[in-house]
């Protein structure tokens, strides 16, 4: 399917800068940003950027990957809890996939993610790398 670039650049604030929404009433931060706070129904919010450090809550190693990821497999993918408590899913890169562990500290880096759709729009965003790198 053709992928229009608007679908890509619309997400830049999240993919490039990890912009999240923090609601005034509850003080809760959501990533990706939401219009409505699920806890309070509040819509008053400010933009905050997520911290760049987190800890892996869970992960997997994708060994059978769709062909668009084929030349990158096996790749690790995980959910990290960032230092402010928000949770983010991203690939874990720059490390041996066999050494990825729950509880591992990760840092966010800006990387090429994929080329989307038949138009091959290059998409960039965040990936996790082990913190010791």
């Amino acid at each position: 399917m053709a992928m229009f670039s608007s679908r890509n650049w619309r997400e830049y604030p999240q993919r490039y800068r990890m912009e999240a929404s923090r609601f005034k009433k509850s003080g809760k931060t959501y990533f990706p940003p939401r219009t409505v706070d699920p806890e309070t129904g509040d819509t008053k919010q400010e933009m905050v950027r997520l911290p760049e450090i987190g800890k892996l809550l869970t992960y997997t190693v994708i060994r059978v990957a769709p062909s668009m990821w084929g030349d990158e497999g096996p790749y690790a993918l995980g959910v990290a809890e960032m230092t402010d408590g928000t949770r983010v899913m991203a690939q874990i890169t720059d490390c041996d996939v066999e050494k990825v562990k729950i509880g591992m500290e990760v840092r966010v880096e800006f990387r090429r993610i994929q080329s989307e759709g038949s138009a091959g729009v290059l998409s960039y965003g965040y990936k996790f790398v082990p913190k010791w790198f």
Partner: peptide
Amino acid sequence: EVFHGATFPGLYAMIAHA
């Protein structure tokens, strides 16, 4: 999720690991 390379087995695998 999918944008970052998640597949369905991958998502349930993350539930399983946790």
